[in-house]
Every structure is written in structure tokens, then in C-alpha cells.
Amino acid sequence: MGMMQEFKTFAVKGNVVDMAVGIIIGAAFGKIVTSLVSGVIMPPIGLLLGGVDFSDLQVVLKEAVGETPAVVISYGAFIQTLVDFTIIAFAIFMMVKGINSLKKKEEAKPASPPKPTAEEVLLTEIRDLLKSK
């Protein structure tokens, strides 16, 4: 099999396509959560804390001099990123938990036992006869 055929077989496999779709949806979901956190969740939290805008929280290590920008540690952006991560992690946890509960329900359904073959029936009869003697 040529290299192009092997690549085509690999690229078209369900797992690769599913993974690509998951990555694309995950990236979009991350943008949604970032927007939710920065536009909806953090403003009320900042208001409760006295009107603090978390994106502006920073420690200035060295003031700006002329054309040289200031050297700062932007810990507010870090706090916002932590909140983003926590929300995304919780949402993924809930999704995985839901999927696992669906899998458990599928596993809990008892499958009908397979019908014994003629050979198994014959062996069972022989076993029962030997037990009775």
C-alpha cells in the first residue's frame, strides 16, 4: 500500500475525525466560556469587591520611561484565566459524568444468554448422567 493510501486510510478513520471535531468544538467552547467569564461573571464579582476590574489588577515593577513600556505583573488576568479554567473544567467534568452514567445504564441492561449449541446440550446431558451415578 502506498504512503498516500495509508494516509488516506488514517485520516478518514472515525477516531481521527471525531478527535478533530472535538478539538474544534473545544476551542469554540473555550471562547464562549472566556466571554462568559470576562463579560458576565467577573464584573459582578469585581463590583462586590468594591468596583475592582480584574483585568486591570497589576503590580508595576518598573515605571514606563519615555518610549520604554512599564514592566508589570498582571495578576488580574491570571485570576480571570483561573476562573475560566475552573468553569471549563467543571463543564467537562459534568459532561464526562453524564456520558459515564449513560454507559453504566447500557452496561446494566442484561443481555439475553446465548442459546446453547447442540454440543453443549449433549455435554450437559453427559455431565448430568455422570452425576446421577
Rank of each mutant, 00 (worst) to 15 (best):
A27I: 03
R127W: 05
L57E: 08
A28S: 06
M42R: 03
F7W: 15
I24H: 03
E67L: 04
L47E: 15
P43Q: 12
L130R: 12
K133R: 11
T9I: 01
R127V: 01
G14C: 00
M19H: 08
F10C: 01
A11P: 00
G14Q: 13
F85N: 13
Q58M: 07
E106Y: 09
M3I: 13
M42T: 14
F10D: 03
F10T: 00
K131L: 07
S35K: 09
Q5M: 10
S112W: 00
I45W: 01
S132M: 09
S55K: 11
M19W: 14
V21M: 14
K104A: 15
T34C: 01
S74M: 03
K105W: 08
F29S: 10
T81Y: 07
F29C: 03
I32H: 02
P69W: 00
Q80I: 03
V65F: 13
V59Q: 10
T9Y: 01
V121I: 14
R127S: 07
K103Y: 15
I73G: 04
I92V: 09
I24E: 06
Q5W: 11
L102Q: 08
K133C: 05
M19R: 05
T81A: 14
G50P: 03
E67Q: 09
P116Y: 04
T9G: 08
K13R: 15
A64K: 10
L130F: 12
M3E: 14
G66T: 04
M94T: 04
A28N: 04
A27C: 04
V96D: 07
A111W: 01
K104G: 05
L47W: 12
T68P: 00
T9S: 10
A11E: 11
P116C: 03
A20I: 10
I32N: 03
V71F: 08
N15P: 00
K97W: 11
A111I: 06
A91W: 00
S132V: 01
A91S: 13
A89T: 01
L61H: 08
L82D: 04
M42G: 06
